[in-house]
Amino acid sequence: MKLVTRADLGWPASAAPTQTSTKGVKVHYEGSPVSTKLLTDHEACIAEWKAIRKSHLANKVENYSDVAYNYAACPHGYLLEGRGIGHRTGANGNQALNQAHYAIVGLVGSSGLTEPTDAMLSAIRDGIELLRKNGAGTEIKGHRDGYATACPGGPLYDWVQNGAPRPGGESTPPPSTGGGTSSSTTYTVKKGDTLSSIATAYKTTVAALVKLNGLKDADKLSIGQKLKVSGAAAPAAQPLQPFPGASFFHGGRHSPIITALGRRLVALGFGKHYTSGPGPNWTNADKRNVQDFQRSRPELAGDADGIPGPKTWAALKVPKS
Rank of each mutant, 00 (worst) to 15 (best):
174 P>V: 05
225 Q>F: 03
66 D>A: 04
115 E>K: 14
37 K>A: 07
52 I>D: 13
153 G>P: 01
169 G>L: 01
52 I>T: 13
175 P>L: 09
141 K>L: 08
110 S>A: 15
171 S>A: 09
188 T>M: 05
257 I>H: 02
127 G>S: 02
21 S>W: 12
108 V>F: 15
137 G>N: 04
262 G>P: 09
242 P>G: 15
10 G>D: 07
162 N>M: 07
190 K>Y: 03
187 Y>M: 01
152 P>F: 01
264 R>I: 09
113 L>K: 10
255 S>L: 06
87 H>K: 11
239 P>M: 12
66 D>S: 08
30 E>A: 14
8 D>G: 09
77 G>E: 01
159 W>A: 06
176 S>G: 15
196 S>F: 01
252 G>K: 04
5 T>L: 09
290 V>S: 08
65 S>N: 09
1 M>A: 07
21 S>Y: 07
142 G>A: 02
251 G>P: 03
186 T>A: 04
174 P>L: 08
307 I>T: 10
134 N>T: 05
295 R>H: 14
4 V>A: 11
36 T>Q: 07
44 A>I: 05
209 L>T: 00
149 T>F: 00
161 Q>S: 03
310 P>C: 07
294 Q>E: 10
275 T>P: 08
77 G>L: 05
16 A>P: 03
99 Q>V: 06
309 G>T: 09
266 V>D: 09
233 A>Q: 15
184 S>I: 14
188 T>N: 08
291 Q>A: 12
218 A>E: 10
250 H>S: 12
131 L>C: 00
205 T>S: 13
13 A>R: 15
132 R>W: 08
20 T>M: 06
238 Q>R: 11
79 L>T: 06
250 H>A: 14
220 K>R: 11
13 A>I: 09
307 I>R: 03
175 P>N: 05
307 I>G: 05
